[in-house]
Amino acid sequence: MAKVRIIGSYQPERTPLHGVDARAKIAFLPLAGIAVIAAHSWIGFAVCLAALAIAMLLAGVRPMQLAAAVRPCGILIGILAVLCALIPPSWAGILRGISLAVRIIIFTGFVLVVNATTTPTQLIDAYNLLLAPLARLVPNATGAAPALTWLTRLIPLVVDENARITAAQAVRGRQSPFSVATALAQVFSARGDAAAAMARRGYAGAAAHRMRVADWLIVVAGVAMIVLSVIL
């Protein structure tokens, strides 16, 4: 049985989604997030799940990898779901809790697909290009690109760091249930390292280029998800 690939790293494969412009994938994420929040029926959830399944297929991401990404946050998701179910205690509350857990898992899946098919440098280039028009209104708007890149990569970075910490704890014979919190703290403290390394090597932004029709289709798919989630 092949080991589940380390989460948090770009998967060096050649899939249809690897060739999509990073700007389209970045734009898709908030659209998918809105669609997931807007879904109010089981048909709506099914649409979002189907979109995720197609995205994972196109990106070569396996269900085991999504499970590995979600597992460290499993306790948190479970606590949130239980709170929803019990406040106030009712069948509607239980359904609310389940739907919250499903929404988090679906959105995590889309984030994982974007990170698996986009290198960190492609992400920061994309954010620079997306923020460049704002530079006319807000000085140094592109300065937010490293932070946004870090936020986009946050889930897989924390999962990867958590895997390192739990392995190190296992060797010492004691595992902490709060390793995710430690992982988050480590990732947070190192958030500027990649940007600093890029600056040292002379990074000064990306060259502008047009998105292709196929790239725009990804954005259209995101909008379609929202529409279907709202009306179904």
Binding site: S9, Y10, P12, T119, P120, T121, D193, A194, A197, M198, R200, R201, G202, Y203, A204
Partner: peptide
Amino acid sequence: AYLGHDPRAGMVSTLVFDEVAFGLRCA
């Protein structure tokens, strides 16, 4: 050009070719 004792400290990409090409693209 600088090369430290921990190669991961200066890495900016998760793809080998991308990592090597990065400085050339910046130039």
